[in-house]
Simulated scan of single mutants.
Amino acid sequence: MTGDFERKLTRRVWADDAFADRLEERPDEALQSIGLSVPAGVKVKVVVQKRDRIYFTIPPVRSPGSPPPTAPLNQFDLWSSKGLFIWLVPVAAKFKLLALRNAARQTGDGHAQP
């Protein structure tokens, strides 16, 4: 995809109900169908916002089984795309998100390349 990955992905979801469903249910497969591979070690969860819902995303404060931290940690970066789309991403996965976005820019129009 050239240009703004998030806008193109959003437009695709708005125009293609089957793709939207697949993106929520099987995001790796849906992204693969438009020529993108999710970086190894990353799990993607896509939520297509509903008009009658409020969503809370609570960042992890610690790894399971580890003791609580003694001070607040910067766990997430917020990435905004022109006010339309927001990524919440663990700091440790930031570079994998950038790799995914860069790959999207290189694939053309967001559809699988021949």
Rank of each mutant, 00 (worst) to 15 (best):
M1C: 10
M1S: 15
T2Q: 14
T2D: 13
G3S: 10
D4F: 04
D4R: 08
F5G: 01
F5T: 11
E6W: 00
E6K: 01
R7Q: 14
L9N: 01
T10H: 13
T10F: 11
R11A: 15
R11L: 13
R12E: 02
W14G: 08
A15G: 10
D16I: 03
A18S: 14
A18T: 14
F19A: 02
F19C: 04
A20D: 02
R22W: 03
L23Q: 00
E24N: 02
E24H: 00
E24G: 02
R26M: 11
D28I: 01
L31I: 03
S33W: 09
S33H: 06
I34E: 00
G35Q: 03
G35C: 06
G35A: 09
L36R: 01
L36N: 02
S37K: 12
S37Q: 13
V38Q: 01
P39S: 05
G41S: 07
V42K: 01
V42T: 12
K43G: 11
V44C: 04
V44I: 14
K45W: 09
V46N: 07
V46M: 14
V46R: 00
V47M: 10
V47L: 10
V48K: 15
V48D: 07
K50A: 13
R51N: 11
R51H: 13
D52L: 13
R53N: 11
I54H: 05
Y55W: 12
F56G: 10
T57N: 06
I58Y: 09
P59T: 12
P59Y: 04
P60M: 09
P60E: 11
V61P: 00
G65P: 07
S66Y: 07
P67E: 08
P68C: 01
T70R: 13
T70A: 11
P72T: 03
P72R: 08
P72I: 01
L73I: 11
N74V: 13
Q75E: 12
Q75W: 02
Q75F: 04
F76E: 07
D77L: 09
L78M: 12
L78C: 07
L78E: 11
S80N: 13
S80Y: 06
S80A: 08
S81N: 08
K82M: 06
G83M: 05
G83K: 03
G83V: 07
L84A: 12
L84W: 06
F85V: 08
F85M: 04
I86E: 10
W87M: 04
L88E: 12
V89I: 15
V89T: 15
P90A: 09
P90T: 08
P90N: 10
P90V: 01
V91C: 10
A92T: 07
A93T: 06
K96F: 01
L100P: 04
R101S: 02
N102S: 09
A103T: 02
A104I: 04
R105T: 07
R105Q: 10
Q106M: 12
Q106P: 00
T107K: 06
G108V: 01
D109T: 12
D109Y: 03
G110N: 10
H111R: 13
P114K: 06
P114V: 05
